[in-house]
Nucleic acid binder design. Structure first.
Length: 941
RNA sequence: GCCCGGGUGGUGGAAUCAGGCAGACACAAGGGACUUAAAAUCCCUCGGAGGCAACUUCGUGCGGGUUCAAUUCCCGCCUCGGGCACCA
C-alpha cells in the first residue's frame, strides 16, 4: 500500500472477505454478558438508497462498540416481506412498467431475472439477496447472517399464529364493524401516499360525516351530510342542486332522497340499502319545506348550484350565520331569510359568516378559494373559542371543541342522524374504478385501546432506555392515543393466515411486533435443527414463556439461547416508526411476554433528506444507489458521514460534496499516520505528558459518549479532536516515537467501530496479525493525566492567540516580542479569590482586607486593591473547569521557556520570556502591570 | 381537528434535558504559504457594529414574564415540518 494512495475499494473488499470467512460476525455465547441489538427490518420490494444506510450504520457501530467492550453481541437482521409492496412490485414488472424495468436493468438484472420477478416471492428472494450482498456486507456490518429470516417463511408463520392465539387467550382480539377502502372490481385496496394500489388520491383521508335526517311532508328523508352537527340549531334552509336528478332508496325502513352517487356509496356502508325507481329533479324539490330534526322547525328548500352530487349525500343544510358558503348563497338567492346565530365567539358579532365574507370581499358563490379561506377562519375561531348560545337547548353554554361528538351521538341514538364515511378527495383504483369505503361488519381488531394493557405499557415504557429522551416523553401520549387496530385483511397480499377466519391474512404491522424473539429460533430453523411441524404452540410456550416441558432436547437448547439473549437491548428504527411500530412492539411484549423479556431500549433516528428537507426520492435526484456511492466515496467515509454530519435526531441533507470531504479526511488520516514513522525520535517532557494526558481525556469523553449512544460526539472526538491533538503535538515539535506508537495504536482501536476497514488496514501496518475488530476498546487511564501540562499548553495557546490579536489590531510588524508572566502575589490573590468564588462567598472588600493583613502585601497596597477590583467580575463568570485550571500549580515562565523554539517559529520573531518577579527586567512600555495568572503581559516591539 | 417536533451566521448544524462565556465541529467564502501550473496540504480571517494593546457593544422567529443571569424556564403569538391507524 502506497503511503499516499489509499485504495479503499480494495481494502474494504479484503477485510470483508477476511471477516466473514472467519465468521467474526456470528453471535457466540462466551462472556456471560450479552447485548442484543437490531434495526426495524426493512420491507423488501425495491432497491434502497444512501438514505436508508443511516440507521443500519448506527446499529453496526453500536454493535461493534459493544463487542469491543466485553459483550457477546447478537445483531441479527431479517426482511419484512408481508403486505402488498412485493405484490405491487411484481405487478409492475408484469405490466412492464417502464420505470421499473429500467431500474432493474440499470442494476444489472438480466432479462431472465426480470421475468422471474413477476412472482412476488421471487421479488422477495431477489431483494433479500441484494440487501445482504450489496448493502449490508458491503458496509461491513457484523450482522449474524446465519439468522436471516423473513415474515412469510413457514416457521415465522407458525410463530405469528402462536402470537395470535396468545392475544386471543388474553381477550385482546375483538370484533366490531370497520370501514375500509374498497374497489368494487379489485376488492380491498390500500390508500397510501406511495399509491401502490390506487392511481389517484393516495393522500386522501377518510372523513366522518354526520348525516342529519330532515323530513319532507310525506315522511321522506332528505339527508344532509355535515362535519358540524352542532350547527343543526342554526339551520335556516336546505340547498339542492336544481339541475341534478336525485334518486330514492329504501334505507333500512326509511325512504331517502339523495344523489345517485350517494346511494351507491351508502350501499357499501349500510346493511340495508335498496335503490328505488323513483327519481326527482332538483328543481322540483325547490319551494318545498322540510322539518329540521331535533328543533322541529320547518325550513324551505332552496336552489344551490354548489351542492355537488358526488360529495356526501348531494344535499346540503344551510347555516348562514356560521358557514360563509351558505351565507353567500343565501344573499344571492335574494330570499328574505334571517340567519340564526347559535355560537358566541370573541371577535365576531351577530353573523360570523357574513363578517368573514365582508372582510375578504366575497361577493359570489364562485369565489371558492376565498370562501374556503373564510370557512377555515370562522371554523377555527369557533372551534377553539366558541360557545353554543341559548338557542341550543340543553347544549347551551358548552364549548364547541367539547360538544361536537356529544351532539352527534345523541342524534344518532335517537335515530335523527346517521354517519357516513367519505374520502376527502376522489380515490381512483389502478383499474380506473372509484374506490369506495366499505363496511366490514365483523372485522377483527387487536384491542390496543384496552385500558389495563395501555396503562401497563405506559408504566413499562417509563423504565426503558429511549433515545432521544424527547421520544420517551412522547410515548405515553402515543400509547394513550393508540386505538384498536384492524389486524386482518382479505385480498391478495402476503402474510400469515389468521387462525380465526379462513382466507383472511394478518396485516403487516400486526405480524411485526414480537419478531426479535424469532431471531433466536431462525438460527435453528436455518440449520434445519428444528422441523417446521415441530414448532407448535407448545414449543413457543415452552421457549418463550417457560410453560410445559420440552418435547425434544433441541427445545431446551433453544430455550437456553432465548433466555441468554432476550430481551432486546436496542431496537433501532427511523422516525416513521414512532407512532406505529414502536407502540405495538411495546404493547405486544407487555401483553404476551414475561416481564423480564420486555424490550430494554429503543433508538429512533431521523431521515436523510434532499436539499430543502424533501424526503429523498429518485425523481428528485437525491437517491444515489448504494453500490455506486460505496465506490465513489468509500464505505468508511459514508459511515463517518452518517455519524458525524448531524445528531441522529435531526434530518440530514444528503450532500455529495460533503461526503467527499469525509473521504478526504480519511485519506488525510492515512497520510498523517504514515508521516509519523519518518520522524526522528526526540523527547520533550512537558509536551509528551500533554499528549498522553490529552489522549486519556479524549478516551474518557469517547467512552462516556458511546455509553450514552451519543455517536456524534464520539465520532467528533475520534476523527477531529484526536487528529487536532496529534497535529498540535507534531507542530510543537513532538517526536517521541514510543509515545506516538502508543497514541496511534489507541487511536486505531478507537476508530474501529466507525471506520473498521481503515482501522484493520492501519492495524497491520502496526505489525499486528489479529483483527483489530476483536481488540478490547481502550479504557480510561487516570495515571496518564497531567493537569500541569494541560494547563501549560493552554497557557501557550492563549499567549499565541493574544499576541496575534494584538498584531492584527495594531498592524505592527514585530521585531521582538516580550512576554511577562504574572508575579507571585497576583497568583496568590487569584487563587484565594477563586477559592472563595467556588464557595459562593466572594466579596471584593473582604478579600482586599484579608489580603492586606499580610505585611508583604501591605507594601503593595494600591496595586492589590486595583487588581482585586479588576478580576472580580471576571472570576464570577468562571465555570468550574476554568476555576480548576487556575488552582493547578504551574511555573508559567518555565513552561513558556521550554516552548521558546516553538513560540519563535509560530510568531516568526524572537521571543523573550520574563517573570514579573525577575530582578532583571526589560519592560520599556510598562506592560508588566497587565499580567495576570495564565494571561501574561505581552510587549511587541 | 388531534398528537408531536422545529425556527440559532452565507450553509449543515452545536449548546436547550439540568438557566451560567451562544455559534462547537464542519462546509462554503476570502487572504496567504507551498507548487512551473493545478489539485492536495498547511496557516490566517470568517454573525453585525466599533476599536492602533491584550477589548467594547448588539445579536438565538415575534411580544411579554421570572432571574444577578434566558437560545434554555413560564405565558401569549407567528411560522415550518412530521404522524394520524388497511403503506411499512
Amino acid at each position: 500500500m502506497e503511503e499516499n494512495n489509499y485504495d479503499y475499494v480494495a481494502v474494504e473488499q479484503k477485510w470483508q472477505d477476511n471477516w466473514f470467512e472467519a465468521n467474526i460476525n456470528v453471535a457466540r455465547r462466551e462472556k456471560n454478558k450479552k447485548f442484543f441489538i437490531h434495526f426495524a427490518y426493512p420491507g423488501v420490494s425495491g432497491y434502497l438508497h444512501v438514505g436508508h444506510m443511516r440507521g443500519f450504520t448506527y446499529c453496526d457501530v453500536i454493535a461493534r462498540y459493544k463487542r469491543m467492550t466485553g459483550y457477546d453481541v447478537l445483531f441479527p437482521a431479517g426482511f419484512h416481506a408481508s403486505g402488498i409492496p412485493s405484490v405491487g412490485f411484481a405487478k409492475k414488472v408484469e405490466r412492464q412498467d417502464p420505470d421499473t424495468i429500467r431500474l432493474l436493468k440499470q442494476n444489472g438484472c438480466t432479462p431472465e431475472c426480470i421475468k422471474r420477478l413477476t412472482d412476488p416471492i421471487e421479488v422477495i428472494n431477489y431483494f433479500s439477496k441484494v440487501y445482504v450482498d450489496d448493502y449490508w456486507k458491503r458496509f461491513g456490518f457484523f450482522i449474524d447472517y446465519t439468522r436471516l429470516m423473513n415474515t412469510i417463511s413457514d416457521g415465522y408463520k407458525k410463530f405469528i399464529q402462536w402470537q395470535f392465539h396468545k392475544l386471543h387467550d388474553k381477550k385482546l382480539l375483538i370484533q366490531k364493524p370497520h370501514y375500509a377502502p374498497y374497489c368494487p372490481n379489485c376488492g380491498p385496496v390500500a390508500v397510501d401516499k406511495s399509491e401502490t394500489d390506487v392511481s389517484q388520491g393516495g393522500s386522501a383521508e377518510i372523513l366522518d360525516f354526520t348525516v342529519l335526517k330532515f323530513t319532507l311532508n310525506d315522511g321522506t328523508i332528505l339527508p344532509a351530510a355535515t362535519l358540524r352537527p352542532e350547527t343543526i340549531f342554526g339551520v335556516t334552509n336546505m340547498w339542492v342542486n336544481p339541475t341534478v336528478e336525485y334518486h330514492t332508496a329504501l334505507v333500512n325502513s326509511e325512504t331517502w332522497i339523495c344523489s345517485k352517487e350517494c346511494i351507491q356509496k351508502l350501499s357499501y356502508q349500510y346493511d340495508h340499502v335498496k335503490p328505488l325507481d323513483k327519481t326527482i329533479i332538483g328543481k322540483d324539490l325547490i319551494g318545498k319545506t322540510c322539518i329540521v330534526p331535533e328543533t322541529n322547525r320547518e325550513v324551505p328548500i332552496l336552489a344551490g348550484v354548489f351542492a355537488d352530487p358526488s360529495v356526501a349525500t348531494g344535499i346540503v343544510m344551510s347555516v348562514p350565520a356560521h358557514a360563509p358558503y351558505d351565507w353567500i348563497a343565501l344573499v344571492e338567492s335574494k330570499e328574505n331569510i334571517e340567519a340564526i346565530k347559535i355560537i358566541d365567539v370573541k371577535g365576531f358579532g351577530n353573523n360570523p359568516a357574513k363578517e368573514a365574507c365582508d372582510q375578504l370581499g366575497i361577493k359570489s358563490q364562485t369565489e371558492t378559494e376565498k370562501l374556503n379561506e373564510a370557512t377555515d377562519l370562522v371554523y377555527k375561531k369557533e372551534f377553539h373559542t366558541g360557545v353554543l348560545n341559548g338557542k341550543c337547548g340543553k347544549y347551551a353554554g358548552i364549548k364547541i371543541s367539547e360538544i361536537k361528538d356529544t351532539v352527534k351521538n345523541d342524534l344518532i341514538q335517537r335515530n335523527l342522524a346517521a354517519t357516513m364515511k367519505e374520502f376527502s378527495e376522489p380515490v381512483i383504483c389502478r383499474c380506473k374504478e372509484n374506490v369506495v369505503i366499505k363496511q366490514i361488519p365483523d372485522q377483527w381488531f387487536i384491542k390496543y385501546s384496552d385500558a389495563p394493557l395501555t396503562q401497563e405499557s405506559k408504566d413499562y415504557a417509563a423504565t426503558m432506555n429511549i433515545y432521544p429522551p424527547e421520544y420517551k416523553d412522547e410515548l405515553p401520549k402515543i400509547l394513550d392515543w393508540f386505538g384498536d387496530r384492524a389486524a386482518i385483511r382479505l385480498g391478495s397480499w402476503l402474510g400469515t393466515e389468521f387462525p380465526y377466519k379462513k382466507d383472511w391474512i394478518i396485516e403487516p404491522i400486526s405480524d411485526s411486533t414480537l419478531y426479535p424473539a424469532y431471531y433466536v429460533i431462525s438460527s435453528y430453523v436455518n440449520q434445519k435443527k428444528i422441523a417446521i411441524p415441530d414448532m407448535t404452540d407448545a414449543f413457543f410456550d415452552y421457549v418463550f414463556l417457560g410453560i410445559g416441558s420440552p418435547k425434544d432436547k433441541i427445545w431446551q437448547t433453544i430455550k437456553s439461547d432465548f433466555d441468554y439473549w432476550y430481551p432486546v437491548d436496542i431496537n433501532l428504527g427511523g422516525k416513521e416508526h414512532k407512532t406505529v411500530h414502536f407502540p405495538v412492539y411495546i404493547m405486544n411484549h407487555v401483553a404476551i411476554m414475561p416481564e423480564q423479556k420486555r424490550p430494554q431500549g429503543i433508538f429512533v433516528h431521523w431521515w436523510v433528506t434532499q436539499k430543502g428537507k424533501e424526503k429523498i426520492s429518485k425523481s428528485k435526484g437525491g437517491a444515489e444507489p448504494i453500490v455506486e456511492a460505496a465506490v465513489t466515496y468509500g464505505v468508511d467515509a459514508m459511515r463517518l458521514y452518517y455519524l458525524h454530519i448531524g445528531s441522529p435526531f435531526v434530518d440530514i441533507e444528503w450532500d455529495p460534496e460533503t461526503v467527499l470531504k469525509y473521504k478526504n479526511r480519511i485519506i488525510n488520516i492515512w497520510r498523517l499516520v504514515g508521516q509519523i514513522a519518518l520522524l526522528k525520535d526526540g523527547k520533550q517532557e512537558n509536551l509528551d505528558n500533554w499528549l498522553k494526558s490529552s489522549l486519556q481525556r479524549r478516551i474518557k469523553k469517547i467512552l462516556t459518549a458511546f455509553e450514552a449512544l451519543d455517536l456524534r460526539v464520539a465520532s467528533n472526538e475520534i476523527y477531529f479532536e484526536l487528529q487536532k491533538d496529534l497535529q498540535w503535538y507534531l507542530k510543537r515539535g513532538g517526536a517521541n516515537q514510543k509515545l506516538l506508537h502508543h497514541f496511534v495504536r489507541s487511536w486505531i482501536v478507537l476508530m474501529t467501530p466507525i471506520t473498521p476497514h481503515l482501522a484493520e488496514e492501519f492495524w497491520i501496518t502496526q505489525g499486528q496479525k489479529q483483527f483489530v475488530s476483536n481488540e478490547p476498546y481502550p479504557e480510561f487511564n487516570s495515571k496518564d493525566i497531567s493537569e500541569k501540562d494541560e494547563v501549560g499548553e493552554y497557557l501557550l495557546n492563549r499567549v499565541i492567540d493574544d499576541t496575534i490579536e494584538i498584531m492584527n489590531v495594531t498592524k505592527i510588524a514585530p521585531k521582538k516580542i516580550c512576554i511577562y508572566t504574572s508575579p507571585a502575589w497576583k497568583q496568590k490573590i487569584f487563587r484565594k479569590a477563586i477559592a472563595s468564588a467556588a464557595g459562593n462567598n466572594f466579596n471584593v472588600g473582604s478579600l482586599i482586607k484579608e489580603t492586606l493583613v499580610d505585611p508583604a502585601m501591605k507594601s503593595l497596597g494600591q496595586q492589590v486593591s486595583q487588581f482585586v477590583a479588576k478580576i472580580a467580575p471576571e472570576i464570577k463568570t468562571y465555570s468550574e473547569i476554568d476555576r480548576a485550571r487556575f488552582m493547578i500549580p504551574l511555573d508559567e515562565k518555565k513552561h513558556l521557556s521550554d516552548a521558546k523554539t516553538y513560540l519563535t517559529d509560530a510568531l516568526h520573531c524572537p521571543v523573550e520570556i520574563y517573570s514579573a518577579d525577575d530582578a532583571d527586567l526589560n519592560d520599556p512600555a510598562k506592560k508588566i502591570k497587565f499580567a495576570t495568572p495564565l494571561r501574561p503581559a505581552i510587549y511587541i516591539e
